[in-house]
Every structure is written in C-alpha cells, then in structure tokens.
Amino acid sequence: MTHFSRHMTTRNPVWMIPLALPFVLYAGQAYDLALLFSVTVAITVPTIHGISFFVERWLPRHLRAISVLVIGAVVVTIVEMVLVRMDQAPSDRTRYMVQALAVAGITVWPTFSSPAGESFRHRMAVAGGLAVGFVVGFVPLAAIRIALSRSGYHYADSVAVGFLLLAVGRMLISTYRRYGSAATPHGNTPQDTAPRGDHP
C-alpha cells in the first residue's frame, strides 16, 4: 500500500486519525461550506507542503515547523484574498475556520511526523493522501448531515449529532475491519483483531 492510499484509508484524517475534525464538524452543515472546505483543503494542503519542502531543506530540523506555518499562513491569506476578490467574502466564523487551516493538524502533522531525509515524493504522497482522504471522508458525513437537516431535523447541524454520526461511522469501520477482512487470504481473523482479554 502506497503512502498516498494509506493516508486516504487506514490513516484517513476524518475517520481514522481525526486531524481534521474541527473542519468536518463545522463545514458539514451546508452545501456551500462543504464545497468551500473540500476545495480549499484539496488545494492548500498539497500546495503548502510542496513549497515548504524546499524551504525546509535550508533550515535546521527543529525549525521546520516555522517554515510550514508561515507558508501555510501565506497560502491561506492568498486564498482568503481570492475569495474576497470573487465577492465570496465569508462570514466571520467561516473566515476564522479558513484561516485556521494554516495551523490545522491536517496541515502541520506531516511536518511534525516526517522522517529524517524524507523525499519530496514521500511528502507529497502524505500531503496528497491527507487532502484526498479529507474530501473522501468528509463528503459522506456532510451529505448525511445536510440531508437530515433538509428533512426537518434541525439538530443535525449541532456538534452532538456530528459526534454521533462519527461514532456510528467508526462502529461500522471497526465491524468491517473485524469481520469484513476475515474472508481475504491475508486478512485478520476475528480472533486476531479481538481486544486482549476476549481471547478464549
């Protein structure tokens, strides 16, 4: 499994390693917010890491964070200015969330966890996988919440229902990982994946 596909699936930033929960819970309330954040994350995360990787080469390892944070802020500021120029100026709360992409886990985590001597290809695979994984994981959650909200269940916009849907999703994933992969030749059996203490 490549780094790209791993960060889309087993390390998905929405369902498996929740690095993007603030955006998922906020943006999954309306179609326009869902579209805005899907496009913004898909563009900004690979762009930030693509530029930052070359700047980081000139910096000591402990200063890598400065590079990715500053470049993240510049890219996000440009995105914000483009939105204003297009007469799509977001509300205060949305603007803060768009700005927060500069320091979000989904943006800075690949830098903090990168191995020494990392190649450009590896970094872009991780960043691209996270960005695509965000969109892939976010779209179904947003679709369910928006559909529930449109059908008259107004609490679907709340954080409580967002957490509840995430919990249900994790239950489905756990069930699939426990039983769904048991039929494959190299899959784990239910006994392999059972928590310690449940073994006979």
């Binding site: 957490f163 509840l164 919990a167 994790r170």
Partner: peptide, 14 residues
C-alpha cells in the same frame, strides 16, 4: 468491543 476506543470518546462528547 464495538464501543471501545474512539467510539466511546465520541459518544461521551456527543
């Protein structure tokens, strides 16, 4: 087992 780990955290937070 299906409620263990992150699921219990999400449910408590909800």
């Amino acid at each position: 087992w299906v409620l263990q780990g992150d699921v219990s955290v999400y449910l408590a937070a909800a």
